[in-house]
Amino acid sequence: MKIRLPKNAIDYVKPGMFVIFIVFIIIRVPIFFRVDNLISVVAQGAVIGIASIGMTMVILAGEIDISVGAMIYCSGAIASEVFLSTQSMVLTIFAAIVSGSIFGLLNGLGVAKFKIPSIITTLAVSNILTGMGSLIIGSDSTLIAGDAYKVISQTKILGLLSSAWLYIILFALFLVIVSKTRFGRYIYAIGDNADALRASGINLELMQTMIFVLTGTLCGIGGLLSTSRLGGSQFNLSLGTEIYCIAAVVVGGVSMTGGKGSLLGTLVGVFIVAALDNLLRLMSVSAYIYGVVWGIAIFTIVLIDILKKKQDIRNRQRQILDHK
């Protein structure tokens, strides 16, 4: 006997898995739903979340930025050193934001002005910044004495850490920018059909550069938060963060070819990535299978999304044929 699945079976897979997942957590890791844990998940995901805002814009524009981790690392190192030398919070914040923006500008110029593929440009910048970050830190791991530097990310406001608040504010701001402004529409248009945008007289190079600069700025803020959380800079801190950002963006349903997706999707993606990381730790998953479980979970979520998109296209084609 052949079992025939309903045509829209895939629609139920993700919600079904979600329900099973929630039941599993309630039974196996009830601690996950404790308010303090959920608050710490948001705080743990703040840096990835902030960098993912930039990554979403870059991917929506049909590009990729693999220097995100290195930008966070290097701008964080710069911020720590500025704080160590000046003890000035204003100068420290300024240094982090400006350095991040400059790194983003390097990427932007490489991609937009010199037409070097983004994967090559950002790879080169990533290598430069990794070396620079290590040079700034020097042979010691610089741990800043005192708690003054931690104020930026560790201050509790209405039960949430300031890093989480900063993420919420930046997310709201960029949600408006991406979905409600002309610049936001251009981001989608670059990823969808850059030639058409150029033909309509828009300065494509400027738009692309701005996207990378904004991503760099966000990474600068990310670097400030990550070093503030640890009380200073560390060797190789946050290197590889781009993998988590790309995972969050893709899990959130943003198309890797650009032009499709939303920041709200990325928000869900960031929460899933941070929650999964937190869950695996709470469950004491073996060090040796941690990566395997993480990878399979992300792969499954993305696969379901792709299957669902394919099914939607098939359904639409069928509707058109029926209509004809």
Binding site: N37, S226, F235, L282
Partner: peptide
């Protein structure tokens, strides 16, 4: 508990908190 961290400071920090 034995937690894999890839020697990454951020992950070590989160691992201890969790």
């Amino acid at each position: 508990d034995e937690v894999a961290t890839d020697a990454d400071a951020d992950r070590i920090y989160n691992a201890v908190v969790d």
